[in-house]
Structures are given as C-alpha cells and as structure tokens.
Design a protein around this nucleic acid. Structure first.
Lengths: 206, 206
DNA sequence: ATTGACACGTGAATC
DNA sequence: TGATTCACGTGTCAA
C-alpha cells in the first residue's frame, strides 16, 4: 500500500511519463481481481462487498485519468511555478489569459496593417478629401461637412463598431472580468477614441 | 454529512458563485472547532486526535482551493463539452493548443503583411502627399493640424486597443467576483454610446 | 514538531 | 438498474 503511494508521489513530483504509471497499474488488477472475485476480507476482518470493490477500482481509474489530464496540462503550459496541482491549474489559467490577450493584440495589429494596405491600394479617397479641402480653401465647415457625409461616416462607424463588438463579443470572458476601475478606464478610452473620430480635422480612415 | 456532499455537488454542477460556497464554509468551522477542541469521539467510538482534526480541516481547505481553481479554469475556457473535472481539463488543453496554433498563424500573417507593405510602401509616401500639399499651401495650418490629428488619432487607437486588452488582464479573483449585473451595465453603456455615435443627427461631443 | 500535499477507500448521489 | 462522479476522512511522506 505504501509502495503505491510512493509511486504516485514520484509520478506527480517528477517528470515521469504515463507509461510508467500505466505499468504500475498494469500490475494492480491482479490484486484487484483477487479482491473482486474472491470476496476477500480486509485486514480488520470486515467483508468487502463486490460492489464496493468495483467502486474502488472505478475510483482508482478515475483518479488516474484525472492525474493524466493534469500532467498533460502541465506539459502544455510553460513556466509552471510549482508542481502543485492547484498551482498547475493557476498557472495554466494565467497563461491562457496571456494567450488570449496576445491574440487580440495580434488581431488588432493585423487589422491595422490590412487597413493600411487598403489605403495604399486605392488612395483616391484620401486625395479626394485633400483636393476637396484644397478647393474650399477658406477652411469653413463645407470641407468638414463633405468629409462627414453620411456614407463615409457610416463606413467608418462600421469599422469602428465591429472592432468594438468583436472586443466584447469574445466569449463573454472580458465581460466577466471587468471590475469598477477597469470599467471606467475602458469608458474613458472609448470616449477619447470617439472624440478623436469626431474631430473635424481627422479625415483619416479608422 | 450528506448535506455537505450535496452542497458540493451543487457547487460543482451548477453555476453557483463562490460567495455561496464561502458562506457554506463559514458555517463549517463550527463543527470543525467542536471536533477539534473537544476531542470528540467519532461514531465508531474511537477518539479523534487534535492533529487528525487539523488534518481534516487542512484537507478540506485544499479540496476547496482546487475546486475553486478548476471552476475558474472552466469559466475561462469556452465550449466546455462536459462539466466533468477531467473533461474540463481536457477541453482546456485543447483550447490552449488551438490558441497556440492560432497565435502562430497570426504571427505568420503579420510577418507576411509587414513584408508586403515593406515592399510596396515607401514609408514617406503618406506624409509626402500631405507635406507637399502643405508646402504648396504654405499658410494652411489646418493641414498641419490634420496631420497632427492623424498622428494623435493613431495614438488614441493604440491606447484604445491596449486598454481593451488590459480589460481582461486580470487576476483569478476578479473572475470570481464578476456578476451578471456588471456585465449588462458595461454592455448597455457601450451599446448606448455606439448608437448615439451612429446617429447622423448627433453632432454633439460625447 | 508542524505544515502541506498526496493517494486511498468509502458512501452518497446523479443519470 | 448499473456505471460514473463526487466529497469526505484518514494515513503517509517530505520539507
């Protein structure tokens, strides 16, 4: 009995692979079958019912599976601080969130790069805007009004809005995560962005 | 005894929050202290040593912590097939690997986009256009303002994006503390802002 | 000596 | 029904 505990300890604490573990368990069904078929008595003299022994085996298998999964998780996540079960899960969560954040960053960067290359592909709109601006040189509101025609504005809104909705569409995780401080921060940033967009002098696509 | 088991079952199977759980456990140390201080005897008549009761409490706490972590993990990973412990870890591993793969993909895409824009884009082109225009219209300050606006807007965009990513850069505790009410509040405010922004008749500042 | 982490067996509950 | 999952208490080992 103590041997098994020891083996489990080693299994968990070291980087031993599952084959060893399964080998360990390959040697177990012997005693298990013996105890299951023969109604063997436990050391204290009480008889073990067959359903109980079944349950024992099942439970042992369940524990093994869970440890297996946990070990696999540990092998996927880098920089595990402690080999503790709870610590493994904790580090996994942190790593997962880091990954999600980085993915969002990369997606934003891709969007920006794509839009920039879009600008390069057909820059007529920019030139139109500048020409229009040059035509109405008196710097009155006409240029601004032209720039803020419903069409262009709607288009810009779509780009802007889709990015927003995508942000808080992301599997409702970040919604769960928002606390008071961050909420206000987000709001401030959104208002800043909207104000910048509202700026008449801003004629660049989002 | 069965009550606790029941509560644990509910705790795990449902989306019950940890406050309830902690409430559950706030009521537990009573019996625990009773058993710890009084050397109470177990039903079979054997005396329970204080070190044993300590061990029991410690073990209970450990189990609670592990379940907490597992629950948090479950809240982070979308599309959990089964609420089983092992299944949760399994789905987490799959999701993690998907994320890693996608991250590599995105990085490759970014690399390609950057190299393509490097090839096609001479970096001064954007500003050349505006600078030439500004040079021709030497007195036109609005163009310079526009340029500055572009730059500042881009800064805002970047800040905005980073703030978004910072929203879900949280610790585990914040996930546990989040509730439905905050979720709907944030979402409503964002929707309201976007709707108002979308209104073509709305020219007021946000 | 104390603490923390583990595997184990067991009874209950859910499907 | 039987199989599966769970929380629990306990003994053991290591730091």
């Amino acid at each position: 009995m103590e041997d098994l505990d020891d083996e489990y300890k080693n299994y968990w604490e070291t980087t031993m692979f599952f084959q060893n573990q399964e080998l360990e368990f390959d040697s177990w069904p012997l005693e298990e079958a013996f105890s299951g078929s023969g109604e063997s008595s436990s050391p204290d003299g009480a008889a073990t019912s067959p359903v109980t022994s079944k349950n024992v085996a099942s439970e042992r298998k369940r524990r093994e599976k869970l440890n297996q999964r946990l070990f696999a998780l540990r092998s996927v996540v880098p920089n595990i601080s402690k080999l503790d079960k709870a610590s493994v899960i904790r580090d996994s969560i942190n790593y997962l969130q880091d990954l999600i954040d980085q993915e969002k960053k990369l997606e934003a960067e891709i969007r920006e790069l794509e839009s920039r290359s879009m600008l390069l592909d057909n820059p007529t709109r920019d030139y139109d805007c500048i020409n229009n601006f040059a035509g109405n040189q008196q710097q009155d509101l006409s240029c601004i009004n032209a720039m803020r025609s419903k069409k262009s504005r709607q288009m810009d809104y779509n780009t802007f809005g889709s990015s927003i909705t995508r942000v808080h569409n992301h599997s409702l995780i970040e919604v769960l995560e928002a606390n008071e401080e961050e909420k206000s921060t987000v709001e401030t940033k959104i208002q800043t962005a909207i104000a910048a967009y509202n700026d008449p002098n801003c004629f660049i696509n989002f």
